[in-house]
């Protein structure tokens, strides 16, 4: 038997494909968020326009830890997503890889402390909050947000946290569970820890 902590090819593919899917969803959302962005620009709050969708940014990492549940799954998932984003022609190029590392670390940290055993909503929400904070620190350094007034940053932080909680803390577990119930994530760590019954007539759950 293989080491359970080793990534199988299908794990890599699952995360990579999810990263592509949500990369496109994120683009779609920012496209729609463009209006919000435009409206906020004259008010000087343009960057706030991106914040409601910020959570989609780390969805690959969140899915990674939640579905695979092995050490490094969050960071590696985010790295995969970042490289893919690079390939898809993001205008930030390899800088995305830096943010990927930060996001992956953020999402995985608390789960690491809980030894990859506790995946309750509480933990996932906490992970999303930590991840938002990490990315904000990253923005402070890299994007120069340290030059911006604190109240504005606080507002952005709040929106970002809410977005992360919705997308990563709640949506990811809910979607994963739905997938498990549809019998699709057989053989992944999520399924093993969930009791799904199946009989001749299909899944009774």
């Amino acid at each position: 038997m293989q080491n359970v902590n080793e990534w199988k090819l299908k794990d890599v593919l699952l995360i990579a494909i999810l990263a592509v899917l949500f990369g496109v969803v994120y683009l779609g959302c920012t496209y729609m968020g463009g209006i919000l962005y435009g409206a906020l620009t004259p008010l000087g709050m343009a960057s706030l326009g991106y914040e409601p969708f910020y959570g989609i940014y780390f969805i690959a990492g969140a899915f990674g830890v939640f579905i695979l549940r092995k050490p490094g799954s969050g960071i590696i998932a985010e790295l995969l997503a970042a490289i893919l984003e690079c390939l898809m022609g993001n205008y930030f190029g390899p800088i995305i890889i830096l943010s990927g590392i930060v996001q992956g670390l953020g999402i995985e940290l608390i789960i690491m402390f809980r030894r990859y055993k506790d995946f309750s909503y509480g933990t996932m929400i906490l992970a999303s909050v930590i991840c938002s904070v990490f990315t904000m620190i990253y923005n402070l350094v890299i994007s120069g947000y340290n030059q911006i007034a604190v109240p504005v940053l606080a507002l952005m932080m709040v929106v970002r946290i809410v977005s992360a909680i919705i997308f990563d803390g709640l949506l990811v577990p809910v979607l994963s569970m739905k997938l498990v119930k549809a019998g699709l994530l057989k053989g992944y760590a999520v399924s093993e820890e969930m009791q799904v019954e199946i009989d001749d007539m299909g899944i009774v759950s």
Binding site: A182, G183, L184, D200, M201, G202, I203, V204
Partner: peptide
């Protein structure tokens, strides 16, 4: 009919 509750992908 035996597959009523299956997911179509199964």
């Amino acid at each position: 009919s035996g597959y009523r509750n299956y997911s179509p992908y199964m």
